[in-house]
Every structure is written in C-alpha cells, then in structure tokens.
C-alpha cells in the first residue's frame, strides 16, 4: 500500500470510527431519561452497539498506524476529529433522536452493504460483522419515525421540525473527502454519489409515506474537518474522566 492510499484509508476509517463514537455518546445521553423504560433499554443497547462498531473501526486504524484506540477517543481535540455534523447535534427531543438514528442507520446499511465487497479485506470483514446488528437498529428507528410522523398532530409537527434541522446535514455523509478518489479507484471504498442515490431511493419514499416534507436545501460539500459548535462540549463531557488522570489504566 503506497503512502497516499495509506493516508486516505486511515482518514476514512477514522471518520467512520468517529461517527460511531459520537453518535453512541449522544444516544447514551438518554440513559435514564428516555420516555419509557423499554426505550431507555433499547437506546442504551443501540449506543453500545455503535460503540462496538467504533471500537472495530478504531482497531482497523490502529492496525495501520499503531495509534491506541483509547488515545484516539479520549485525547484528541475537536479539530482532530473527523465526525459528521449530523451526529454531533445535541440529542434534541425524541423525534429528533429517532429521526437522526433512522437517517444514520440507512446510511450505515447502505455503506456496509457495499463495504462487504471491499478489496480491503479487513474493512469487508468488519462490514459483514456489523451489518446484522444494524438491521436491528434500522427496524427500531424506522418504526419510531413512522409512528411519530403518522401519530398525533404534535408528534408530526415535531418530526417535521427535526427533519428540517437534520436534512441539510445529511449531505456531508456522502461528500467525498480529499483522498477518497484514491480509495474508490482501489476498490477499497464505495462510490459516494452512487451511495447517495441508493440512500435517497430508500429514504425519500419512506419520509413521504410519513407525510413529511423534505426541504429543498442542498448543502455544498462540507469537509469533515469543519465541525458544528456542539462537538467541543460533547468532547469536554466525554473525555473529562480519562483526561483527569492520563496514565490511569482502565
């Protein structure tokens, strides 16, 4: 593997790892606060799954660079993270959390289905491992989105408001970063445009069935080095204990 490919692959794996870690943290913020006990349990499970996926992606980064996953998670500043702004947003209300999860689950399933055939075997193995778990998430989040979208006037209004806020942020998931063209050429990572088309073909009719209106807002390509203002606060919370004693062994 040449240097350019090595760097591009590391960045892309890190982006996937960061997405999972940050989303897991946002979902874990509901622990003890979800509307009903069953949902508290479900979302804690989903958060734990995403954390597990993050661990696998960080492990693949470690295999390439030697970086310790715990150091990557707890000792990098916001400027060094590659997470998407979609997962950085505060948890919002239940509609917001479930819709974000749905949009991300659909993206992740779209990605994993293709990565399963990646020419980079460790990524292919990881994708096959994660995909069956994601199916549980997708079922859960899609049922909630439908239920709230077609529920009461208030639940529909909240779901529409969440969609208005989240929709412009989905574009970043499918925007290629510098170096991604090398990954695609090597067959290591799937084509982003094709992924977006496939994702849209699933998500759009689903949202329409829920009588939700997708805004025309089209965001330009946003680099993953650009973060929402929310990431700093999240990291301060998430990294506080680990940074209190840098040499502690857990």
């Amino acid at each position: 593997m040449n240097d350019a490919l090595h760097t591009a692959l590391t960045n892309r794996l890190l982006a996937s790892a960061d997405d999972e870690l940050i989303l897991a943290h946002r979902n874990a913020e509901w622990t003890g606060h979800a509307p009903i006990l069953e949902e508290d349990i479900a979302l804690a499970n989903i958060a734990q799954d995403e954390l597990g996926h993050g661990t696998i992606w960080y492990g693949l980064v470690e295999a390439l660079t030697g970086d310790d996953p715990d150091r990557l998670a707890f000792f990098r500043d916001a400027s060094q993270f590659c997470s998407a702004q979609l997962v950085e947003q505060p948890r919002g209300d239940w509609a917001f959390t479930m819709l974000r999860q749905y949009l991300f689950d659909a993206y992740e399933l779209t990605l994993l289905a293709r990565l399963a055939g990646s020419a980079y075997q460790p990524a292919a193995d990881a994708a096959v491992r994660m995909r069956n778990e994601e199916i549980y998430h997708y079922r859960h989040s899609s049922v909630w989105v439908r239920r709230l979208a077609l529920g009461t006037e208030e639940s529909h209004r909240r779901m529409q408001r969440a969609l208005n806020e989240l929709w412009p942020l989905t574009g970043q998931l499918f925007s290629a970063q510098p170096g991604d063209e090398i990954l695609m050429a090597a067959g290591y990572w799937p084509d982003f445009d094709e992924m977006k088309q496939s994702w849209m073909s699933v998500v759009m009719p689903f949202l329409e069935q829920g009588e939700l209106v997708v805004s025309d807002l089209v965001d330009g390509p946003v680099d993953r080095s650009e973060h929402s203002g929310h990431l700093n606060g999240l990291l301060a919370d998430m990294q506080m204990v680990a940074r209190a004693d840098r040499e502690a062994v857990w």
Binding site: R114, A116, G117, V128, R131, D191, E194, M195, Q197, S198
Partner: peptide
C-alpha cells in the same frame, strides 16, 4: 447493495 460498483452484501 444493488447498483453498487462493489458487489452487494453476501
């Protein structure tokens, strides 16, 4: 996974 450059999920 249909329509993908990379073969779909096996």
């Amino acid at each position: 996974g249909e329509g993908s450059q990379i073969p779909p999920y096996q």
